[in-house]
Amino acid sequence: MGASVMLEALEGIRATLWPRAFKRFTGAMLLLPAVALVLVLVAGLAWMGDASLHLLDTETFETGADYTAANYRQMGGQATYWIVLGRSILGAAIVTLVTLVLAFPYAYVMVRTGSAWTRKILLVSLFLPFFIGQVVRAYGWLIILGKEGLLNSLFGILGLGPFKMIYNYPSVLFGLVQYLLPFAVLLIAPAVTAIDEEIELASESLGAHWLRTFRHVTLPMAKPGLVAAALVVFTLALTDYAMPVILGGGTNDFIANAVYDAFFRISDSGLGSAVAIVLVLIATLLAAVILTVLGSGTLGFSAERR
């Protein structure tokens, strides 16, 4: 009873502060806290935008007072940045594709399995890796895949190898897939839950091969989850810093590593800001492409979905 009285009181406060006439703006109102939080980042971006327009004088290590596009010109004129940027975008695309291909069956089995225990095991396996940070997990892979690592010593018993499996581009992508997989499954699972199993069964009972059913029924219906997962995996892979450092052996940098180098290694926050801002623009643009081409996915509005 106490709860309902309290609710009524709250309802009264709500009615005073937010009469029904304001209903049109309720959506905007609800978004306000999240928008305000992201504003913290926007303030940072504004600082970086300003810093990127001043040039560092390496004789005094002070930035010049004049506004100049020199940092952007320097970036544009250096092939390294384009190579690293291309490597990041290609890498993020491959990682997204592989992660989704791996994550979807996992999410599907987890939702559809009849055994509560199977479901629990799959869920727990998903959550546990979260608790070991990205860095420590990557070091775990170094131990498994290194030249004198676990896998190579197994190969050694068979008289094979040793193979060079780390400190190259594929190992960076592998590390990213492994890191991002749980996120993808968690975003896909609710979408699979929302699919009525009856529809799939109907398709299969009409004689469709399960692969056809998957392609024409299940996947399209799970699209919201797939799009959300694609967006998350793609943007996080594109802007990742740690995996290229640990698994890339120093010669497979992503663009975030260039940001790090500029800020920390050569103490040039102007150049670092310029690279960071270009990265934000490109990542946002590509995210917009994903949203437009694939539809808005889980982020969509009820009106669009139905």
């Binding site: 390496t58 390294t80 010669t251 940098d253 260039a258 050569i266 040039d268």
Partner: peptide, 18 residues
Amino acid sequence: QVENEKEWFGKFKSIMQG
């Protein structure tokens, strides 16, 4: 070292990341 580090660094990176 300090005055030229940025340039040296850029050159080294452009060789190694190329």
